[in-house]
């Protein structure tokens, strides 16, 4: 009886997998950057990915919206497999938002224009509606007063929050974060993390590459540790931090938590 229920839950969970990576490999020339990555992410799950520099964590999440191309294996996002088919790629990119280390806001457009560009040109929303949505998200990231400024006039933390809002304006099902706080001055990290925590509370599916272990502890459902292109360990945060299984994980944690 109990087994039955468990199976039911399992199968239900199976159907909720919004991202699935099956045996994904990637090479940069000769360099084998991703080695047999298997990962399933369920709707609403919040995953933090950490690991030493060069371990392939950014590459992995950038494969999910095809900013990087994988050479072997299967990536399925929201039921659509990523292949060379441009239609599939654009469809997935509409559903997957990404937030970059260096914000990558469009410097020639105002904050509001940054927010409304994709809804208007990709989702074909009218300008008024797009601006309404844009303003809503600007309020959510707490900088509505900056709407008419240019990105270059904002602080790093504000720019990153605009970048998050820009992705959210497309109403994505998944948000990827590629070291969103690593380029920020220390006093600005908190405002960005707060925004991300609020986003997590709305039930957004999130994959974050970050070294903010405090964030991982409070927000993540799972923490993944990568090294040399492989997923070494994936576990719930308290197990991950308190009882890491692998030596490499222990070493890494001792290094980043030492100071």
């Amino acid at each position: 009886m109990q087994d039955n229920t468990k199976q039911e839950i399992d199968s239900e969970k199976q159907s909720e997998d919004i991202i699935k990576l099956n045996g994904v490999h990637k090479w940069y020339g000769e360099f084998h950057v991703l080695k047999n990555i298997n990962l399933s992410v369920q709707q609403g799950e919040r995953i933090v990915i950490c690991g030493p520099s060069g371990s392939g964590k950014s590459t992995m999440i950038r494969c999910i919206n095809r900013l990087e191309e994988h050479q072997q294996g299967q990536i399925i996002v929201d039921g659509v497999e990523l292949t060379n088919d441009l239609k599939h790629i654009e469809k997935i990119r509409r559903e997957v938002g990404i937030c970059f280390q260096h914000f990558n806001l469009f410097p020639h457009l105002t904050v509001m224009e940054n927010l409304t560009l994709a809804p208007i040109w990709v989702r074909k929303v009218s300008k008024e509606d797009a601006e309404k949505i844009g303003m809503e998200y600007l309020e959510r990231v707490k900088i509505p007063e900056q709407a008419d400024k240019f990105p270059g006039q904002l602080s790093g933390g504000q720019q990153q929050r605009v970048a998050i809002a820009r992705s959210l304006c497309m109403n994505p099902k998944i948000m990827l974060f590629d070291e969103p706080t690593s380029a920020l001055d220390p006093e600005m990290i908190k405002e960005v993390l707060d925004t991300m925590i609020e986003l997590a509370e709305t039930g957004m599916t999130m994959l974050c590459v970050t070294h903010e272990m405090g964030f991982a502890k409070t927000v993540a459902n799972r923490v993944i540790f990568m090294d040399e292109g492989e997923i070494i360990e994936a576990n719930e945060p308290h197990k991950f931090f308190d009882n890491p299984e692998h030596e490499r994980t222990k070493l890494f944690l001792s290094q980043i938590l030492a100071h």
């Binding site: 900013l67 970059f100 260096h102 990558n104 806001l105 469009f106 990709v122 992705s167 497309m170």
Partner: peptide, 11 residues
């Protein structure tokens, strides 16, 4: 990054 940001928004 500008190319990537544009692409990632589905443009």
């Amino acid at each position: 990054g500008q190319y990537e940001a544009a692409a990632s928004l589905g443009l």
